[in-house]
Design a protein around this nucleic acid. Sequence first.
DNA 1: CCGGTCAAGTTCCCTCAAGGAACCTAGCAT
DNA 2: ATGCTAGGTTCCTTGAGGGAACTTGACCGG
Lengths: 189, 189
Amino acid sequence: MTRVRLADVACSIARATDLFGDAWTALIMRDVMAGLGRFDDLARDLGISRKVLAARLSRLVDEGVLERRRYQDRPPREEYVPTRKGKELSAVLLALIDWGDRWYAGEDGPPALVRHDACGHDTTPVMTCSHCREPLTADDTTVRPGPGARVGTGTLLLVDRLSADGPPGDPSGPEGVARSARDAPSSSA
Amino acid sequence: MTRVRLADVACSIARATDLFGDAWTALIMRDVMAGLGRFDDLARDLGISRKVLAARLSRLVDEGVLERRRYQDRPPREEYVPTRKGKELSAVLLALIDWGDRWYAGEDGPPALVRHDACGHDTTPVMTCSHCREPLTADDTTVRPGPGARVGTGTLLLVDRLSADGPPGDPSGPEGVARSARDAPSSSA
DNA sequence: CCGGTCAAGTTCCCTCAAGGAACCTAGCAT
DNA sequence: ATGCTAGGTTCCTTGAGGGAACTTGACCGG
């Protein structure tokens, strides 16, 4: 979709947004997760062009996020259902819903409510730390390159600035990943 | 960006993805949140066209997600920093990172690690229920229309199918929202 | 047997936005 | 006065998205 294949960049956000960072995909996933899996229903509900819908769906199937399943044999009819991988995207959707509700809810209140069926209550999804279970906020989290990080592809080059700004907690990435963008002019300058 | 202004649809995901559902925006936010706020650095790090970067940044500023701030007067230099609204998007980014790490990490391990500075440990962000504090999964959450929901704009029409599939927990949305897409052929058929 | 319909796509054409790269403008710096 | 750097704008071309019609395969009614 993008000229420079974002997916080639070894950054999790890039990988995820290459798939998900498209106006329609999130909406499609919302609908499919809610059980709306048929082509025509999706097209109608979203007002999306059928061509684009077909492209998105087959992409999502290729990525293993959706599964195309025959729900009826005679006449043969297919529907799309989320795979496990797809279901795990719900955290992203919930975060998106929550943010949208918080910042764009009108006078009437939020357009969407999330219910946690397990406990039976409406809920506000909270992102928490797997270790201490406290809520995570932007101010107390730091994203660092992990063992699989690569340099030079235009991602994670920002780490240098990070460690320059904050206390030098543990600036050593995996072998020398913390290289500044400005240290590596793009070969032509 | 999209022909049919998604933002006009009273769905939180639509509102959020109209802004965020673009391949670059998430990446820009990642960088800005990490402290990389200068135009040239962003352009270089992302490999994005300067034109598009300028457009995205001014959109993000208009939306109140970023603030354009002068960090030096002589010569005048500006940088972009996340506002509170912008910082709250970190939950979405964390969810995206987590998902990307889980499903696209190579042999070497995840390209990105998230550290929770408050507790000092690397963390896996977990989406939890604000009420019972248990993790939320796709299978035990239901998205229902809330008080601010509207009908007919091609969103949340899926509720009918939901209540048809599952146990009839509480199928009554706010006044008659639960209308099926197929009950309302789009005026021409 | 023939036309109609429905689901699930495809195909075609056209426009508009993204990409790329060059150009511009303010303030220094030399 | 010339150059450099940060922070954009402008111009041109390509290609993805929108819209809508067409296709395919199977059932349905007469």
